[in-house]
Design a protein around this nucleic acid. Structure first.
Lengths: 211, 211
DNA sequence: GTCTATATACCGATAGAC
DNA sequence: GTCTATCGGTATATAGAC
């Protein structure tokens, strides 16, 4: 794995694989397609990265690592639990927009029941989930948030970020069919919407305009 | 299509196809597998339903029709916009739990950008979306809901219902790896959680415990 | 380490008998 | 309408030359 002369090549392969897996899914992805997009020979891909399954896991592991780093940065801003949760929403929204492949791959994993996720990948996911879950629980303990299930709250939050962003293409296709469904709103507005929508339901005092 | 002697067979085929498409995706689904599960010969499947693509669209159309009927029933209960929206959340949650194949297939469609959705299927989806969107806009106009984007609100709602239910298998797998992630909560609680979480953020007066 | 050529298996779809 | 047998195309993966 680390024996590659060109250190960028593995990243290029993972980038290409991430794009193709996100677009077509594991079964629909073609190894030839990934190799072509990465600009490497298919035999080289097998030599360096391993088979299709190993490639898939490697992509997910790298993508979860990116999310973890982004969340750590968001939490490092400090402040109240609410302020940090808002920073988390901003960071997640930015991640989903900069690297849309990851949520697209995970949507497919959720659809399939994650039956083929390797334990290593599952652990990387749980690490990320645990960070947000702990933040919500901390906010509840501090009286900032209502007493509410932290895991369900976290899933609602992630679901909102993913849905509002990942459905953009389907909404644009729909806009061509009928009026009133377009919504090519500036992407930055999505994070603000989620904060209004979820946090004003979360805040213990429910003060209007609290965001 | 209607020339089949056994009228149940087409439904059996669509049921089997729905399960396999949800589990494996379009590319991962095997026509032999679908035929076997439906208890019909593969050649018969092609003779009656058409090729794999036509089968896929037929499944989605039937599943969206089920959602539409369920939404119509929920809206027929009448009452305030909030009461009807709560009925919609209950109906959607029940649909997702009774027919989990449909949200699983749609999760994959969202992931792929819905590039292969036939216009007929897209129209069926928009009909369902339009109903909820109109209800939210009506509630805002009546002063029951805050002035908020109805499409983004609808997507947040659907995202919550789908995420909280569809991630159950992955959460159960995670529970085996570490403590604190189990959450095999009674499924009926999910609808109540969503009402608390979203509607208390939606309601114009934000009265605590308003649900 | 790199690439060409190919083995091997599988899957969607249909021909054709009944 | 129903079924068996099979075709043709394509995919993952590797053997083997350099």
């Amino acid at each position: 794995m680390g024996s590659t002369r060109d250190p960028d090549r593995r990243d290029r392969i993972l980038d290409a694989a991430s794009a193709v897996f996100a677009e077509k899914g594991f079964a629909g992805a073609r190894v030839d397609d990934i190799a072509d997009r990465a600009g490497v020979n298919k035999a080289m891909l097998y030599y360096h990265v391993g088979d299709k399954t190993a490639l898939y896991s490697a992509v997910l592991l790298r993508n979860f690592e990116r999310v973890r780093v982004a969340l750590d940065e968001a939490l490092a801003t400090g402040g109240s639990a609410r302020a940090r949760l808002e920073a988390v929403i901003t960071a997640l929204t930015r991640m989903v927009q900069r690297h849309p492949d990851h949520p697209r791959m995970m949507l497919r994993e959720i659809a399939s029941g994650a039956t083929s996720l390797e334990p290593e990948v599952l652990a990387a996911m749980l690490e990320v989930v645990g960070v947000v879950r702990a933040l919500i629980a901390e906010g509840t303990a501090a009286g900032e948030f209502r007493a509410i299930d932290p895991v369900l709250t976290h899933l609602t939050l992630v679901g909102a970020v993913v849905f509002l962003n990942a459905t953009a293409p389907i909404r644009n296709r729909a806009a061509a069919l009928g009026p009133g469904f377009s919504l090519p709103e500036p992407t930055t507005d999505i994070a603000r919407f989620i904060k209004e929508m979820l946090l004003d339901g979360l805040a213990a005092d429910r003060k209007p305009g609290g965001s």
